[in-house]
Amino acid sequence: MIGAGSALLALALLGGLLVLVALAWERALTDAGADGELTIRIDALLPQTQCGRCGHPGCLPYARAIAAGEPFNRCPPGGASTIAALAELLGAEPRPLDPAHGQELPRRVAFIREADCIGCTKCLPACPVDAILGATRQLHTVIAELCTGCDLCVEPCPVDCIELIAVSPTPPSSAAERRPVAT
């Protein structure tokens, strides 16, 4: 077999080249959608609760800090899924949530017990997404649909009339589980 060795070599080279091209393309295709800066891509993965548990005043500042090298396991509202997504983006190993910053809880919304509210307006500026409606000596209320459940309005309330209640997660489509007829 003349040239069997060189043929093998050529084939191996060709194959290797193809793999390299494939990998390069795969990378190119994957990265094409990522618009620019790392900070923005990190911010897109954060839950936007704006609670500040990570030690930064909002999700965008924390995204900046992560881009600058801060640990990415300090976001309790995002929890394990956010950490996993960040790990994938940053090419790092996922880590458990840092307990020093809080625990992962189910999604919650703030609720003002209207009987106790004195209309002091102290909670209004605390809300990072302006989801509390109210005026001086008027009853306040939380627009539940807009509330991120960040907890920041609880602290300023002088009469402690705000509590966070868990919202039932959206039930999965019932189409997912179809029971057969009992026969």
């Binding site: 897109a44 954060l46 936007q48 997404v129």
Partner: peptide
């Protein structure tokens, strides 16, 4: 059908996050 539901949920969460970011 169940995958569509999961995808819709994910998209709703993303939309929600985008809105929260804008409001913040």
């Amino acid at each position: 059908a169940s995958a569509q539901a999961a995808l819709a949920q994910l998209r709703a969460d993303r939309q929600r996050a985008d809105r929260d970011r804008d409001r913040f």
